[in-house]
Amino acid sequence: MTTAPTAPGRLGEAIEPALIQRYLAELDSWLRTRKDELDELDRAALAAGRGEELVGDMSLTLALWKAIHDRYQLVFATWDGGRVLQQERERISTLIWGRLDGASGMPGGLAVSLPEACRLNDALTGQLRTKLALAHDATEQVARIRALRAQLERIRDQVGLEPATTRDQAVDRLAGLMARLAQISDRAERGADVGGMLGPLEMDATTYERDLIVGNARRRDARSKVLSARELRTDLEAREQALEKLAATCVTTVDTAPRYAIPDVEALGPVPVTPDEIDGYLHRLDRVSQALELAQHKYADALAEHTELVALLDAYVAKAKALGVAGKPDLVESEKQARAVLARRPAPMTVAHQLVATYQTWLQKETSQS
């Protein structure tokens, strides 16, 4: 099972461009691979007749994946191909290390950062895989033991974040998990079959890692509604700026582009500090977050339509080449017209769809005559 990349920098820090670029590439790869893994697990659950049993876990894991993917889009838009000064790099830091609020589809309004959401998604995916018992052979057992060692190291980091009142208890529980892993490793080295022991340990470790991540996030969120409002406002400001870039890219790329107003976070005024005002302010922040999310999806979908249409034309051309008809004058001219329209800024999408369809029609005609 793939694991999420390590996020660079920290909140408020202007992250180095090279680190941002590498993280974006690794996160994009992780998102794609994780979606494939979740699709595989979903198919396995249905094939085993356990779809209803695991629907809650699967829905939660997919909701986390969607929240992570949405935040990746905003970071990528702010990155803007590397055209970032210090202000943009600080904004990217906020997008990475700020909170993914409840409007992003997170369960129960849980407030976690992007790296925490990724680690939580890793944990939940591992839990699903363990429940479905998709690994059995000796080679896989070695890989599972190695993955458990890495997971316990992550748990060790999370234990260090526990408050003093509960840290001793957390350390004892971690020690128990490590002792069980040491026993399993010793048995495996002696050639014993440890498959039956690995599953329960993987389940316990995953549950504990999830509880630690969630507990840490909840403690942060409960410290103060005022602090929570400030974190959310900072995150919304970063999202607003990222969405403005995404919208600008969309408007210059496609015609007709969506026209959604981007809320002005500054218009909300400063964060109040009185109990009578903070709840209303948090409610307004949440509504702004929902509006930003809606606009983001519309602009991203419009850009995706353009990308998919280019890919469709490429597929038709590849098919024509494979059939030996790509050089036919009508096909050459049709492809030229379609690509010219798709390359316009903005590209008239209605005409582009018609021209790609025209190329498909010519391709069908030429292949029917061959």
Rank of each mutant, 00 (worst) to 15 (best):
E153G: 14
E140N: 06
A117S: 08
T130V: 11
I155G: 09
G109A: 06
G105Y: 05
A133E: 11
R167W: 12
Q151D: 08
M106D: 03
Q151N: 10
R167Q: 15
I145P: 03
D122Y: 07
E162D: 12
Q127F: 10
A138E: 06
C118W: 11
K131W: 03
Q151E: 12
A111R: 00
R156L: 12
V112A: 00
R167H: 14
L132N: 00
P115G: 02
D168M: 13
V159E: 03
R156F: 14
R156S: 14
L128F: 07
S104Q: 10
D122F: 01
R119T: 05
Q158S: 15
A103C: 04
T165M: 11
R119W: 10
A111G: 08
L124I: 11
G102K: 01
G109N: 06
P115N: 01
G160F: 08
P163I: 09
E140M: 06
L120V: 05
R144N: 06
I155Y: 04
P107E: 02
G160S: 13
R149P: 05
D157E: 15
S104C: 09
L124H: 10
V142M: 06
A133M: 11
P115C: 06
S113W: 01
C118L: 13
A123L: 11
P107V: 05
R156N: 15
V112H: 02
G126H: 04
C118I: 09
D122H: 07
R129W: 07
E153Y: 13
A143W: 08
R154V: 10
L132F: 01
D122T: 09
A147C: 09
G105E: 01
L161Q: 15
P163Q: 11
Q158D: 14
I145S: 00
A147R: 12
A147S: 10
V112T: 05
A150K: 07
V142N: 07
V112I: 00
K131Y: 05
K131V: 06
Q169L: 12
E116Q: 13
R144P: 04
N121L: 14
A143M: 13
R144A: 06
I155L: 11
A111S: 06
R156C: 12
T125V: 10
